[in-house]
């Protein structure tokens, strides 16, 4: 495999793993218009729950689903803290994120759980396809194919949900809460649905990343919200039209471009320890560039 193939392979594999994170952050960061810091807890929570269950011998699909549900629960707790106790949504997210850190340590029983010998959803799917006579090996290409199908299904489901009666109410809650309340919607409920769904997707990313990388780590969530936000903003910068389908597609493309930029940064000699700085700079650029472009055009 030549270097270009490796770069592209890495971009798509890691990018698609992060696609669920992008979709989850899109829900809160864009539709609810606030950065939900629960993500910093729910992402490693997804990894931790999946790891603990896999080590305990649970089926990888059940473990992954349970991990996502745990993330949803974290989001629901944030929503309850915000709505019932009337605490600012960002502060509520910080409180839950901090609490979940301990939960993650308790769930794993240690700071890092290796998953090199346990089965994973990727291995299981490849094995199932082999049983059907498809001569596929566990590889980057196989992982990309599996993830692409998975992302497409989840994205389609999310787009469909956001066009349902409840989905419209969730979107309107972020945009004009007074109006949607006046139409009979209990926004405490829709906030719970939105934050639950968002963190469900974010924890799903965490669970899949843990299985792909072969370990879950207590520190894997640091800066993850910035990563998601950068991806969402990069996607937005590319697509002008804003229908639900485009919003979702843009978030996924944004994640892939974000990953490509990270891969290129590493390729030109930056070290993995520089990653958070790169991510922060990318987010800064994604936030500042549209404004700068505006100034160039009209100033």
């Amino acid at each position: 495999m030549n270097i270009v193939q490796t770069l592209i392979g890495n971009t798509f594999e890691q990018g698609l793993l992060f696609a669920f994170l992008g979709l989850g952050v899109l829900l809160t960061f864009r539709f609810f218009r606030f950065p939900d810091l629960t993500a910093e807890g729910s992402y490693p929570l997804g990894g931790a729950v999946a790891a603990a269950l896999l080590v305990a011998g649970v089926n990888p699909f059940a473990a992954t689903f349970a991990a996502a549900l745990a993330g949803a629960l974290a989001g629901i707790v944030t929503a309850l803290v915000h709505t019932r106790l009337r605490i600012n949504a960002i502060i509520a997210g910080i409180i839950v994120m901090t609490a979940v850190y301990t939960v993650n340590l308790r769930v794993m029983g240690r700071a890092n759980t290796p998953l090199l010998t346990t089965p994973s959803v990727f291995g299981d799917i490849v094995a199932a396809l082999n049983a059907f006579g498809l001569p596929l090996r566990e590889s980057v290409v196989a992982n990309i194919a599996i993830l692409a199908v998975f992302v497409a299904v989840v994205a389609a489901a999310m787009a469909a949900f956001l066009r349902t009666d409840l989905g419209l109410a969730v979107r309107a809650t972020g945009e004009n809460e007074t109006m949607i309340k006046a139409l009979g919607v209990d926004t405490d409920w829709t906030k719970m649905v939105g934050l639950g769904l968002s963190n469900f997707l974010i924890a799903l990313s965490g669970a899949l990343v843990a299985q792909n990388h072969g370990f879950a780590d207590i520190g894997m969530g640091i800066g993850i919200l910035v990563t998601g936000a950068a991806a969402v903003l990069i996607g937005e910068a590319i697509f002008a039209d804003r229908t639900i389908g485009v919003w979702i597609f843009a978030a996924i493309v944004g994640v892939l471009i974000y990953r490509l930029l990270v891969v290129l940064a590493l390729y030109v000699g930056l070290q993995p320890i520089d990653l958070k700085l790169i991510t922060a700079v990318l987010l800064l650029l994604a936030l500042a560039l549209p404004r700068f472009r505006h100034r160039l055009r009209f100033g």
Binding site: A160, R163, T164, D165, L166, L168, A169, L183, G184, V185
Partner: peptide
């Protein structure tokens, strides 16, 4: 859907 329960039907 004013004042009605909102479910998972296409809006």
């Amino acid at each position: 859907k004013r004042g009605r329960v909102r479910g998972l039907r296409r809006a």
